[in-house]
């Protein structure tokens, strides 16, 4: 589930770094989803190795910060996975709230 979240965020915002991703997810979910360091970075590195994300580095405040952006192939993958995510959420919504319950 972390993968579509990251791709969805990077579609909205061109360039993000790891900590920024965790903060935006926390803010947008009201603290309900808290991505840990150990959960986030393996997914980011896997996406980078697949060529879906590209990285660049910038010196910031006495350290080197690594930024992630979607590659051209990544944009296409991100759109597809975001659509799949919304379809999954709709299906889950329908499952949790079947028609007979709604009528009642």
């Amino acid at each position: 589930m972390i993968r579509p979240i990251i791709l969805h965020l990077l579609l909205q915002k061109e360039r993000m770094y790891g900590y920024e991703i965790t903060q935006v997810v926390r803010e947008q979910t009201g603290g309900k989803i808290a991505l840990t360091l150990g959960a986030l970075y393996p997914v980011l590195h896997k996406l980078e190795s697949e060529g879906i994300l590209e990285t660049s580095s910038q010196a910031v405040d006495n350290r080197l910060r690594k930024y992630y952006t979607l590659s051209r192939r990544g944009r296409k993958a991100a759109f597809e996975q975001t659509v799949e995510m919304y379809e999954f959420l709709d299906a889950l919504q329908a499952f949790c709230n079947p028609p007979e319950n709604r009528n009642a």
């Binding site: 840990t36 360091l37 150990g38 393996p42 590195h45 896997k46 980078e48 190795s49």
Partner: peptide, 22 residues
Amino acid sequence: AKTRGEEIKATAGQYQGILNAR
């Protein structure tokens, strides 16, 4: 306290695996 050692080791192991493949 919230950064678990096993998570960090697993992240390091996975990253090394990606580098080895590269």
